[in-house]
Design a binder for these strands. Structure first.
Length: 723
RNA sequence: GGGCAAUUAGCUCAGCGGUUAGAGCGCUGCAUUCACAUUGCAGAAGUCGGUGGUUCGAAUCCACCAUUGCCCACCA
């Protein structure tokens, strides 16, 4: 006993990881069998991993280790995501804080350098953390959404979609973030409820309502519902003079069904340049559109005396002026409205009309189906299964309401759009046009200039299941490992990422990207609060690992974690599983010291009795092993059904309350009885080793550490106890 | 405004048609040279959100209601 310490020492976990990594068995090239593939969701290179990452690393590692032991050729491909907006936003904020400079002060080239350096440092931290979690992924195939191979894939994908007319450029109203100075897609918008005074303003004979008087300068169209009897006397197209903010203007009556007769007075004026609804109305009636606010949120010449002022500062002054002119009828101070913000650390969205690149989701592709239909069909045909199932409905609903995907961003850190311009010519290809290819803005008219915009980060991560396997080349990996088996991620990126992967894979490969989508929930703190830095309730996975070990954290993240449901995590829970790791350790100490030849100081039986020899088991021990076999079958079944939470809980129970509390306790009298001793030794050994194997996917470190006490080979690649 | 989900012990959650409803944590009491105090044994604790229905039988199925959470939507 002197050789085995009384307490399991989790500080040795990194050594165990090294042992696995050096063995080469993370790499499927050193394994045989039917392939089993998971692409790791690439963490953003925006800093460090949080406990949400720890969840997916654990879930995926469980699947991978389970399938590897079952004799599959497992590939778990790791990587990181350059995360255009998130990284840009972070780096810009850092530079501004340290040097008081914006990216425009630095220039594109210098900014790209800084961003790349930051991304590299984040990458290194992340990779270290992934290893610390015990993730048995194949580092030899590590990928980055912004490296050379992925860049080729991105440009190829763009080119193919462009050639098929699925990518187009157009002036649309977009979600403009004046803070980051880029547009963002509809999905990146986060609506926040905000109290704001609601103004009733006199507009000629009408009263209009608005929460945003600063946008109203150019409002020369007044819209009512065609069926609204109150305004029956006014005809569509009729013009009248009205006194407005900066003097008299000519207003035109427009009748449109977009107006809600119940809301306010049932009359509204429109600002087509800065509002999506208004833009649509203007489009329908072919009305003028005028820009009021610039890219930075500053008022333009149309604002008259307010020109050059930021809208935030100008609003109260404009209200004052309106009041002075007697145009304010009343103010509703108890009004709430929803403000659009950029969810990736940006500012308040000010819609603008801009020329942007879009992916057309309704246009027919070559095989007569629109991208929308391709996305729907993959799930409806049951080629892809989503767990839990209720997310399929949510997915369908999202697709049905899907509008064209805006893919261009006015940012500098990302895949630059593979399109070049020369006067009125336009050129799109994987490589720049011959002889030219200037990316500089000062290129003269007779030179090709590349579009300065970068692509939405989801455009590149949409290719992830196959850009990582060598596509667009005819790579062996692509043939072997695609479609992948499981895509495991958080339900919060079902639309952002999962849907885009289906779109890209269906269009570019004519195949599904994965067979099963497993969606886990968000990790919350012990009071069910969302973790956030401002609340100070963020759990740092590495800190937890240092105190309690990876295995303990892994179990804490798995038990009770049902697909699609959020999981509260407390330190108490993790501590409980640290205790469990120690329980395993001590049960193993007991078994090894009694049943291992050198420590027991005697020859110990190694095989169950047959006609040729071996040790005959007592009836009681036979029953115990039969029960173990049944238990192993039940655990296997749960793992096959992706029921990790219950498999983990069952293992915990069985080990502690059946094996440790009962079987080991009862074995003490058996071991003392010379007639029963050999049978008990053998039974205990089998019990222990079988459970080590079953527990290994969940708690790889403690189980491997114990295994290494007596074996030369790795537990990681032992045969799973039940087929 | 549309949709989805949840409501079971102090807390977090299992159970989803069939004997006295379970677990972990927490709580209470007892135990300690014997693998482990990061332990063991014993125990208290729930009219399974409400109302009605289906059934021989309901925490479990159905309807309605209440509360909470989440997602989607162009209410100026």
């Amino acid at each position: 006993m002197a050789d085995i310490p009384k307490t399991y020492d989790q500080s040795k976990e990194p050594d165990i990881y090294k042992l696995w990594e050096l063995s080469g068995y993370f790499n499927p090239d050193n394994l045989s069998g039917k392939p089993f593939t998971i692409m790791m969701p690439p963490p953003n290179v925006t800093g460090t991993l949080h406990v949400g990452h720890a969840v997916f690393l654990t879930l995926q590692d469980i699947m991978i280790r389970f399938e590897r032991m079952r004799g599959r050729k497992t590939l778990w491909l790791p990587g990181t995501d350059h995360a255009t907006i998130a990284t840009s936003s972070k780096v810009e904020a850092m530079i501004y804080k340290q040097e008081g400079k914006t990216r425009h002060d630095l220039g594109r080239e210098e900014f790209e350098k800084r961003a790349a350096k930051f991304a590299q440092e984040s990458h290194d931290t992340i990779v270290h953390q992934v290893r610390r979690m015990g993730a048995s992924c194949d580092w030899s195939r590590e990928a980055y959404t912004f490296d050379q191979d992925r860049s080729l894939a991105v440009r190829t994908a763009f080119k193919r979609m462009y050639d098929d007319g699925l990518i187009y450029r157009g002036f649309r109203i977009v979600n403009w973030d004046p803070k980051l100075k880029t547009n963002v897609s509809d999905d990146e918008i986060e609506w926040k409820e905000e109290a704001a005074p609601f103004y009733y303003l006199k507009y000629g004979p009408f009263t209009i309502g608005t929460a945003r008087p600063e946008t109203k300068f150019g409002d020369k169209y007044v819209v009512v519902h065609p069926k609204d009897a109150r305004y029956h006397e006014y005809k569509h197209g009729q013009q009248l003079e009205v006194e407005w903010i900066n003097g008299k203007i000519t207003a035109t009556i427009i009748k449109d069904e977009a107006v809600d007769m119940e809301f306010g007075t049932g009359v509204m004026t429109i600002t087509p340049w800065h509002d999506a609804t208004d833009f649509e109305i203007a489009k329908r009636h072919n009305l003028d559109k005028e820009q009021i606010i610039d890219d930075r949120g500053v008022l333009l010449a149309v604002a008259g005396e307010f020109v050059g002022q930021h809208i935030k500062k100008a609003r109260p002054l404009i209200v004052e002026k309106l009041k002075a002119k007697g145009l304010v009828e009343k103010i509703d101070e108890a009004y709430f409205h929803r403000v659009a913000t950029n969810s990736r650390g940006g500012g308040i969205i000010e819609p603008q009309i801009k020329e942007q690149w879009f992916v057309d989701v309704n246009k027919e592709t070559k095989n007569k189906k629109s991208l929308k239909e391709l996305m729907l069909q993959a799930i409806k045909s049951e080629k892809i299964k989503i767990i839990p199932e209720r997310f399929e409905k949510i997915y369908f609903h999202w697709i049905e309401n899907l509008r064209d995907w805006c893919i261009s961003r006015q940012l500098w850190f990302g895949h630059q759009i593979p399109v070049w311009y020369r006067s009125s010519e336009i050129y799109c290809d994987v490589e720049p046009p011959k002889g030219q290819g200037s990316t500089s803005a000062k290129a003269s008219a007779d030179k090709w200039t590349q579009d300065p915009d970068t692509l939405d980060t989801w455009f590149s991560s949409g290719l992830w299941t196959f850009s990582t396997l060598g596509w667009p080349q005819e790579a062996t990996d692509l043939k072997t490992f695609h479609p992948t088996d499981v895509l495991e991620t958080g339900y919060d990126i079902l639309f952002f990422w999962v849907a885009r992967m289906i779109l890209m894979s269906e269009f570019l490969l004519g195949d599904i990207p994965f067979r099963t989508v497993y969606l886990h929930g968000l990790i919350r703190d012990k009071d069910r609060q969302k973790m956030s830095k401002s609340k100070g309730n963020v759990i740092d996975p590495l800190g937890v690992i240092d105190t309690y070990g990876s295995d303990a954290l892994r179990m804490g993240l798995i038990v009770g974690n049902l697909p699609g449901n959020d999981l509260p995590l407390s330190e108490d829970k993790v501590r409980g599983y640290r205790n469990f790791a120690n329980k395993i350790w001590n049960a193993a100490r007991f078994v090894i010291s009694n049943c291992s030849s050198p420590l027991a100081g005697e020859d110990v039986p190694t095989s169950v009795g047959t006609d040729e020899g071996g040790t005959k088991l007592t009836k009681d021990d036979k029953t115990i092993l039969k029960d173990l076999d049944k238990f192993a079958a039940a655990v296997t079944k749960k793992l096959e059904k992706f029921d990790f939470a219950h498999a983990a809980e069952d293992l915990y129970h069985y080990f502690w309350h059946t094996f440790a509390d009962k079987i080991i306790e009862e074995s003490k009298t058996k071991l003392a009885d010379p007639k029963k001793r050999a049978s008990a030794q053998l039974m205990l050994k089998i019990m222990l080793e079988t459970q080590l194997k079953l527990l290994h996917p969940f708690m790889p470190f403690v189980t491997e550490t114990i295994w290494q006490l007596e074996h030369k080979d790795l537990l990681m690649i032992q045969k799973w106890p039940k087929q």
